[in-house]
Simulated assay, not measured.
Amino acid sequence: MIEQLTGLVGRVPLRDLVRQSTDLVERLCIETALRKTRGNRASAAELLGLSRQSLYSKLRRHGLMGHGGQGSE
């Protein structure tokens, strides 16, 4: 994935690369927190320093709502 982003240098504006990079890092951190907490979203939110509402918003944005199982709070 990193190679794909760096391959875009000079082909897309820097702001788009930064946004894509930020989204990638955010998604990886959320996935890692969910793995560490065995899908417990409340614990993952706490681990990330987010409110549950913020985590849910990010899960929806990244298409991760099914990650960790339903009702894993």
Rank of each mutant, 00 (worst) to 15 (best):
E3R: 11
M65P: 05
T6P: 12
E26N: 15
T37S: 12
G68Q: 04
S43P: 06
R60N: 09
K36Y: 09
L34P: 15
L64S: 13
K58C: 07
L28E: 12
G66T: 15
A44H: 03
E3N: 11
L5Y: 06
R41L: 05
L55A: 04
C29S: 09
Q53G: 02
G66I: 10
G49W: 00
K58A: 12
L47V: 01
L50V: 00
S54H: 01
E46L: 08
K58S: 08
P13L: 00
L17E: 02
V12W: 00
A44M: 03
Q70Y: 08
L24T: 09
G63Q: 06
G66K: 15
S51F: 05
R60H: 09
I30S: 02
R52G: 08
E46H: 12
R27M: 11
Y56S: 09
K58M: 14
N40I: 04
L28M: 10
S51G: 06
A42C: 09
L17R: 03
T22E: 13
L8V: 10
D23Q: 07
G63A: 03
V18Y: 00
G10P: 05
S21H: 05
A45D: 01
C29E: 13
L5H: 13
L59Q: 07
L50E: 01
T22M: 07
Q53N: 04
R60F: 01
E73N: 06
E3H: 14
A42S: 12
L14H: 04
T32H: 11
D16Q: 06
R27Q: 13
R35N: 15
G69S: 02
R27S: 08
P13Y: 13
Q20E: 13
G10Q: 00
S21N: 11
V9T: 09
G63R: 05
R27Y: 03
Y56C: 10
S54L: 04
Q20F: 07
G7A: 08
L64I: 15
N40D: 13
Q53T: 02
I30P: 14
N40T: 02
P13C: 00
L34R: 08
V25F: 08
L48V: 08
Q53V: 11
S21C: 15
E31S: 11
Q70V: 04
L55E: 05
L48G: 03
N40H: 10
E26K: 06
L55S: 03
R52H: 05
R38M: 07
E31H: 03
D16T: 14
Q53A: 08
S43V: 12
G7K: 07
E73L: 12
T32K: 06
L64Y: 14
R52K: 11
A45F: 00
R41N: 03
E3L: 11
L34W: 03
E46P: 14
L17N: 03
G49T: 11
S54N: 04
E73D: 08
S21I: 09
G10K: 01
L47R: 10
R19C: 06
N40W: 11
